[in-house]
Amino acid sequence: MRVLRLHVNGDCAEVAAPEHWTLLEVLRYKLGLTGSKQGCDKGDCGACTVLIDGVPTLACLSLAATVEGKQITTIEGLVPAHRAAGGEGVDPVQNAFDKTGALQCGFCQPGMILSAKALLAKNPNPSLKEIQESLAGNLCRCTGYTQIYEAVVLAAKGDLA
């Protein structure tokens, strides 16, 4: 066991966890943050994508004991951050996914949204190719991706009324 001090969604969480646990396991089974999904659990599907210091990272392949001191953002952190910045409702990228119907089962959506957030933070007006490349590590078995790309385009335009 190790006592970890993790910075998750703007809060500092002190949590005791076995040293061999992944960040995903700590998020889901110690902190109750089940938005990050446990899919393939070996780096193929992207469903566990979180942002570590703003960079899309797979929580299933990150040891919790190696991410102390870094800023971790999960899907649960988007709405509080959006509202803390003066926004209303949900995060604009989440809103765009809703507006375009960019999900069916929804399992890949947290990872997709976080990959999209990181892209738009770096490049507010991406081309379709850039969107496709940025989401190339997130697999969706339902939608065929088209509406997911449309959601990112819509979020970039900001035309969400």
Binding site: G46, T49, P56, T57, L58, S62, E133, S134, A136, G137
Partner: peptide, 9 residues
Amino acid sequence: VSSPQLRNM
């Protein structure tokens, strides 16, 4: 190599 997330890591 692999995917964006894995290249970040």
